[in-house]
């Protein structure tokens, strides 16, 4: 089949990196996820998954007809192990484990190109974000370094009320043990005074701290209730 051949050539030209191989072995680029795969070992279907994603994201998941427009314009596609249209299909088919295993969820840039170009007006970026929320709630973030960066950033806001770039970097380096993150930028950033050396403080920081405290309390309660 010429189409298969083309995919084969493309994959030969752009071999998946080792981290992508696990899912690629099951689903090649552009391959639609087939129903029959739901019976393959280790990929159990979770009956209400699709409904849950649809109701949480308020998006008509079922209207996706796999045109592939979302993936065609996705700027992170080159780094994805499962393309965004494949994720949509996997959601339709209740393939929760497959979706949560995908690194793509955590590499999504949130650019909303997919949402703009979906002919069925599905806010695909919102679906991706909903999936991240759901996966985090089940402690299934498969690219911890991205999550660590977010949490480092939020920690600074919780403390200072506003973002504090150097603080975020230092905390992130400690948490991810990547101590050389962006050191190549430091000389220019410092000479051009691109980074404030000290956090700017303001009275609102305490009010912001209280927002975070209440948020964490509610989260704990929700977890206990589950």
């Amino acid at each position: 089949m010429p189409c298969r051949q083309l995919i084969h050539h493309m994959e030969a030209a752009f071999p998946p990196r080792p981290s992508q191989r696990a899912i690629h072995a099951e689903y090649s680029m552009n391959e639609t996820i087939r129903l029959s795969k739901s019976s393959s070992p280790g990929v159990a279907a979770s009956p209400s998954f699709s409904q849950e994603v649809a109701s949480t994201s308020k998006q008509p998941i079922h209207t996706c007809y796999q045109c592939g427009n979302c993936s065609a314009g996705c700027p992170a596609a080159f780094a994805y192990d499962l393309q965004v249209n494949q994720i949509m299909r996997a959601v339709q088919l209740n393939q929760k484990d497959l979706v949560y295993r995908a690194k793509s969820l955590w590499l999504c840039l949130g650019c909303a190109t997919c949402s703009l170009r979906c002919p069925n007006n599905i806010d695909v970026a919102c679906v991706m974000e909903t999936l991240r929320h759901m996966a985090r709630a089940e402690k299934k973030a498969t690219v911890p370094v991205v999550e660590k960066f977010w949490l480092s950033f939020l920690n600074m806001i919780r403390t200072f009320g506003r973002s504090y770039e150097i603080g975020t970097m230092v905390l992130f380096m400690l948490r991810s043990l990547r101590l050389t993150t962006d050191v190549d930028l430091a000389p220019q950033a410092l000479v051009k005074r691109k980074l404030g050396l000290l956090p700017h403080t303001h009275q609102g920081r305490e009010a912001v701290g209280r927002i975070f405290t209440r948020f964490h309390e509610l989260q704990c309660k929700a977890r206990e209730g589950r």
């Binding site: 949130g110 974000e129 977010w150 939020l154 806001i157 506003r162 973002s163 920081r205 948020f215």
Partner: peptide
């Protein structure tokens, strides 16, 4: 006066409610 960070991407990546509260 006294504005705070909007939460940027990390806040809404973690929680819609948190992002919107900020």
């Amino acid at each position: 006066d006294d504005w705070n960070c909007c939460g940027s991407t990390p806040a809404h990546a973690v929680s819609t409610e948190l992002s919107s509260a900020l």
